[in-house]
Design a protein around this nucleic acid. Structure first.
Lengths: 215, 215
DNA sequence: TAGATTGTTAATCGATTAACAATC
DNA sequence: TAGATTGTTAATCGATTAACAATC
């Protein structure tokens, strides 16, 4: 076991493995091999073993892995054995959709507030989550001990919101605005660009087609 | 210029470059260097040039790139010079939010219908887009010549929906359900897992913290 | 011509795959 | 003991970075 550099792709896959393990666990499976996990999520068995090897030895040679056991090991690795409090900035369609997204709750994320600067939206409750004005950002983040913020405001306002968040005790930001953000080093930043994903799809489709027709 | 193998990361970055170019173009900038693009989107200048080199020579040595020109070249590479018709399967929070998402429209994607199996939702219009029953999936896809489908149904139903789509003329699928899908080779598939992104964030936060406290 | 910046090749770095000894 | 499967090392593959000749 070595810990030095862990590829981000490994973390992505661990997340996928853990969800797959939860799924087979629900079906009553107690033991699973790297080959079966690989088959289930579409990677190679060596990949599965390598990914796990970064963090320890979780299996039994000749036998495989205990499903529940490995599941909890991965949950712990991902930091999901504790609850994370999350605020959402932007009560538009995407923000409200994410505030109700079951996938977050299932994995232990707790949305503790939504922020917007539209006076009409303030005070409204979405699924029991209150919409606050931007002025109360710092106050609510402190009160709720929120560690993560999700930005779903229009691209033009994303940097401004990021600046405001940088002045709070927020530790990580998940940015859905299609804009590159400048942030202090101490903040963890991840970008989710919904259009990019669709565009990789169109590239593959357009490119394939071009290949077929001659070339 | 060689075309053989293009890293997916290159396509992701091209998408980001093009949006950045649109942004500086709006500010009246006409010429830009690889270094300036790199600075603007947070990669290295060599990276920018390498990415572009897969597809041709778009710049002038000693000068740089014409902003509008390069923008359109990338748009063409990504296959965005034509309109893509898209259907959304699942009229829940996420599906409806995506149907109204401005980021898609801006890049030339046209949502032509939303599908759901909840009778209460059928016939309802969201932003001018009609909600159809699942039974009409094939009919509407043919009529609207939709090429892409976005899956936003619960994980339990994702495979079933994928199977239905595989029987239509849909060419590509963007899957938001946290479930690995099995599909025929001919279909292009991309997975967007919203939780995974949040989990990479928590891993980084949890891991960093563990590093600090001893270890 | 001198300065700037591209396009491209070679060197480096990192991640995946293959192979196999360890061991249940 | 024989069969299975892990954990790990070495080999391969691929992507990024550095360097520089080409050229505006």
């Amino acid at each position: 076991m070595k810990t030095l550099k862990i590829p981000e792709a490994t973390i992505t896959r661990l997340s996928v493995y853990s969800r797959y393990l939860a799924q087979v666990d629900r079906h009553g499976v107690t033991t699973i091999s790297s080959g079966e996990i690989a088959e289930g999520v579409g990677v190679s068995p060596a990949q599965v073993r390598k990914d796990l090897a970064y963090f320890g030895e979780f299996g039994t040679r000749g036998v495989g892995y205990n499903v529940k056991d490995l599941y909890w090991h991965i949950i712990k690795i991902l930091g999901l054995n504790t609850t994370w409090s999350v605020v959402i900035i932007g009560a538009g369609n995407l923000g409200t959709a994410l505030s109700m997204y079951g996938g977050f709750r299932e994995r232990g994320f707790k949305i503790v507030g939504i922020f917007d600067n539209d006076p009409h939206k303030i005070g409204y409750r979405l699924n029991g989550i209150e919409v606050y004005p931007m002025e109360r950002l710092e106050e609510i983040i402190e009160r709720e001990k929120a560690q993560i913020a999700i930005i779903t405001v229009p691209a033009e306002h994303a940097q401004e919101v990021a600046d405001q968040l940088a002045r709070t005790s927020i530790q990580g930001i998940l940015n859905f605005a299609p804009r590159v953000l400048n942030l202090p080093e101490r903040l963890e930043l991840r970008n989710v660009d919904l259009s990019v994903n669709l565009e990789i799809l169109t590239f593959n489709l357009a490119f394939r087609r071009a290949m077929k027709n001659g070339k």
